[in-house]
Amino acid sequence: MGPKKVLSAEEGDDIKKSLEFMTEEISAVKLQMKAILDLVEEVKALRIQNAEKDRRLAYLENRVADLEQYTRINDVIITGLRIKPRSYARAVAADNVGGPGEEDVNSTELQVVTFLRSKGVEVDYNNIEACHPLPRKNDSDKPAIIVRFANRKHKTALLKQGKKLKGSDVFMNEHLTKRNADIARKARYLKKQGKIQNTWTTNCKVFIKLNGTPEQAKVLVIRYMEELDKY
């Protein structure tokens, strides 16, 4: 080996400056890395917070939807029934209804009860708390009519007689919220396509019955539209 090269003072200073510069750069990189890691941890924490907020929001939205549906639990929606002006209702004999006098009854209520009884549908006038057309976009003489009963058993008793209206183009259904009505509509579409065996609503809950053998044909309650996507 040859003789070792002796660095000059100038070269030594350059190397020292280079090392100092590299040390400063490494320190700066370390600081930047720490800042990046801190930001990553902050992002993780925010994601967790957002996920928790999303879960909380979803819970509250579902709670509101359940409460909204509960307020309609005693309602029946009647569609396809032609409603006459009030003057016509007063011309209908009150004894066909078995309720109070003509001047005290609501026109829509009187016509609804009279029609139902004409079809053999049993309904007690005294169990009805309210009866009126729902808001509509046009002046149709066949608006959807809401009938609110004093309790759920009277509503259920009326709906069980729905078959007596067959052929009249008048239908009785539960008063579903928009969300549940959309779920029920999709479930009926799946039934029409043969992808499920049957669907119905009870106490404003949407049920479906799956295809297959008796062991496979389970009955499920559907609360969310996404639950139908698999079918």
Score class of each variant (00 low, 15 high):
Y125T: 09
E10P: 07
R179G: 02
V92G: 03
R148L: 08
R90Q: 08
K163F: 02
K178A: 10
K44V: 12
L159S: 02
D169Y: 11
V43T: 05
L19M: 09
A91Q: 12
Q32T: 04
Y88M: 05
T23F: 10
L158N: 02
N203G: 09
Q216Y: 09
D95G: 04
V105S: 02
D124E: 14
A51F: 08
Y125Q: 09
V92R: 12
D13T: 11
V105K: 10
E103N: 13
S140T: 14
L228K: 11
R188L: 15
V64M: 06
Q49K: 11
T177R: 01
T156K: 03
I146N: 07
R136E: 05
Q32W: 04
T79Y: 00
D104Q: 13
R55A: 13
A144P: 08
Q193L: 10
L60E: 12
K119W: 13
T199F: 12
N126E: 13
G98P: 10
M225E: 12
L134I: 03
A181F: 06
K163L: 03
E174R: 06
N50A: 05
K84T: 01
A51C: 06
F149K: 02
S87K: 14
D182T: 06
M172R: 00
R86V: 10
P143D: 10
E102F: 01
D75E: 07
K209G: 06
N198A: 13
K178C: 12
L31C: 03
R136G: 10
A9H: 04
N126G: 03
D54S: 08
V113Y: 04
K84V: 01
I83N: 05
L159I: 09
V64P: 03
R86T: 10
G80Y: 05
L110W: 00
I26L: 15
G80I: 04
N173R: 07
G212Q: 13
V105P: 01
V97K: 03
T213E: 10
Y189K: 05
E25S: 11
I145M: 09
A58P: 00
K34E: 15
D54E: 09
I26D: 07
N203T: 11
L159Y: 00
E42C: 07
C131E: 00
I128E: 00
N138M: 02
A28G: 00
L19T: 02
D104W: 15
P100W: 07
K155E: 04
K153S: 14
A65F: 06
K137D: 15
A89P: 00
R152Q: 15
V97N: 09
A51Y: 12
A150K: 14
A157P: 01
K5N: 05
Q32S: 14
Y189I: 07
V76Q: 05
Y231P: 03
K119V: 14
A9N: 03
I36F: 10
L110V: 00
K44E: 14
D95W: 09
C204M: 06
K160L: 13
Q193I: 01
N127R: 11
P135L: 00
D229T: 02
G212R: 11
Y59C: 04
G212E: 12
K230E: 14
N173G: 08
V40N: 07
Y231N: 10
R152W: 10
S118H: 08
K30T: 07
A144I: 01
W200P: 15
D141A: 06
I73C: 03
L67S: 09
D14C: 02
Y70I: 13
G12Q: 11
D141M: 05
V206W: 01
I146E: 09
V121M: 01
V29Y: 11
H154I: 08
L60C: 03
